[in-house]
Amino acid sequence: MPERVTLKDVAARAGVSYQTVSKVINGNGSVSPETEAQIWKAIEELGYRVNVTARGLRKSATGLIGYTWAPNPPDRGNPILDQFLTSVVGAAEAHGYHLMLFPHPPVIEQVDVYKQLMRSGRVDGFIVASTNYDDPRIRLLIDEAFPFAAFGRSNPEWDFPFVDVDGCAGIRMATEHLIEQGHRAIALLAWPDHSRVGADRMEGYYAAMQQAGLDVDPAWVHRSESSFQAGYTAVQRWLQLSAERRPTAVVALDDTLAIGAMRAAMDAGLRVGPDFGVTGFDDAPGVQYLSPPLTSLRQPLQQVAQRLVAMLIERIHGREPEPKQVILPPRLIVRASSVRGER
């Protein structure tokens, strides 16, 4: 059996005292960023692991849940994730836990932050949000068998506890609603192909169009990052198509794209609702006060948070949550932006 790596081994590799290593691992004291990076590098190279069992004999669990997320797009806040965060705080406190927020660098760097928090014993578990395909955070936590629960799915073959909102069913509802309003040429404002959530939502659009026997012109599908300008430019271009190819409505994968679409239609002299239908997703704060108010899909964020925290508490106590994976439906909130009225 190989000898167990000790704190002194890490200190020797990093060129510091073992007291300094101990302080960094336990989050006490203050060292320079360079020294801390050097210590964590030594820990990684030597494969040092905190003796969690021994620590448990000396002190109780932290009562802290780690939470990080990356704003998308990175230059502005995300009101939906903010609402989710508020719900998680309330749900966690109801169980006697508190949330520990930590920086949200690019995902690859987040992995290093997760490693540090796990090995220092500063948190009892994690809630992971803004998940994607091949998510390195989820892969790490699965491999380390560390307690976590995720808001969102990742690779289908990965087995882990999550709660997600059924974006496919939501966009299908929105598309069917526009079809019921008499639209036959319906465009889609989508996200880039690397987005798992975007791919899930897109499926709902194609399913609804196929079920209604409606063909999708490839020119009607625009993929981009979420922004007002992207929605505006895409609709501007669509309205320049010939009359037989021009969409009369658009389904957007988020409210920001939908607002850009509304503005482009109005600038072209169209009435949003009667002449050009628009739906969004998220029901972000304030969309009900637009003119016209925006039809959107509302996510059950409070229910998501409550389920996630309950799952995580089970994992922290060494039990498997039941059920382990939950998918909740969104709710279509119909407003004037998608209603044709008398025609």
Rank of each mutant, 00 (worst) to 15 (best):
L257R: 04
P274W: 14
V10R: 06
A207F: 08
G77S: 10
G231R: 12
V31S: 05
P105D: 15
V5H: 08
E144N: 01
A14P: 12
P71V: 07
L117Q: 07
H177N: 09
V88P: 00
Y114P: 09
Q210D: 09
A129L: 14
E203N: 08
N28Y: 08
A185S: 15
D124W: 08
G15N: 11
S87C: 13
G231F: 06
A310V: 05
Q211R: 15
V221C: 02
I333D: 12
D124Q: 04
G66R: 12
Y205N: 05
V165S: 02
E320C: 04
E314V: 04
G170I: 02
A212N: 12
L297R: 07
R153A: 06
I316F: 13
S17G: 15
R298D: 01
T295D: 01
E320G: 04
Q325A: 14
G286Q: 02
M1R: 13
V221T: 01
V165Y: 01
A264W: 09
D143T: 03
L101F: 11
W40A: 00
E45F: 03
Y67R: 13
D215E: 05
K8W: 11
T233A: 14
V88R: 00
Y67W: 15
F228K: 01
P192K: 10
G213D: 11
Y97P: 05
V16I: 14
M202T: 00
N28D: 07
A249M: 07
Y205C: 06
V304A: 14
T35C: 05
V16T: 10
V10H: 02
D254M: 08
D164F: 06
Q303G: 03
Q299I: 06
A234N: 09
A199W: 14
L253P: 00
M262P: 04
H183N: 09
Y48L: 08
F148M: 07
L178A: 11
Q211P: 02
N28G: 03
A199L: 13
R340D: 06
Q181E: 15
L332S: 11
E36Y: 10
V250R: 03
A150W: 01
V278I: 02
V128D: 00
D283E: 07
D82M: 14
P103I: 13
V221D: 01
V250M: 07
W238E: 01
Q83G: 13
D200Q: 13
R119W: 04
G29H: 08
I127Y: 00
G269C: 11
T86G: 06
